[in-house]
């Protein structure tokens, strides 16, 4: 479990960073998406990995907290997902505006020689 998650985060991050440094705006956006997936998984992992454990305790029953998953990172991940979704949407609008105004999808708004 740990190794799969760690590999997943690593691959997402590596691909995300590679794409982030590409010259095309669309690649940059996909890179940021992948990075945000990696970060979300990372936040979840910081609450310790638990299989089959509920995050919500029942009211009025004496409970053993060690039988439950940590709910806080899950709440944080939800917030982070919403926020990164919104900023990605906004970035897409800027991308389209940039494409429309400059006529190119290069991140600097102008084509450079020798770049893919």
């Amino acid at each position: 479990m740990e190794i799969v998650l760690a590999l997943g985060i690593g691959i997402f991050t590596a691909s995300g960073i590679w794409l982030l440094f590409r010259p095309r705006t669309f690649q940059v956006i996909i890179g940021l998406c992948l990075l945000s997936y990696a970060v979300n998984l990372f936040i979840l992992a910081m609450g310790r990995l638990r299989m089959d454990a509920p995050p919500i305790i029942e009211r009025g029953v004496a409970v053993d907290p060690s039988q439950y998953a940590d709910p806080l990172p899950q709440a944080l991940v939800l917030t982070a997902i919403v926020i990164s979704f919104a900023t990605t949407a906004l970035l897409l609008v800027v991308l389209l505006a940039s494409r429309g105004q400059t006529g190119t999808d290069h991140v600097d708004g102008e084509e450079k020689d020798g770049e893919p």
């Binding site: 940021l32 990075l35 945000s36 800027v94």
Partner: peptide, 21 residues
């Protein structure tokens, strides 16, 4: 503004991810 804005948004989205980490 759009050129500067594109860079600004990208840099800040990337930094927000560092913030979360």
């Amino acid at each position: 503004r759009i050129k500067a804005g594109l860079h600004y948004v990208t840099i800040n989205v990337a930094t927000s991810l560092l913030f979360l980490i």
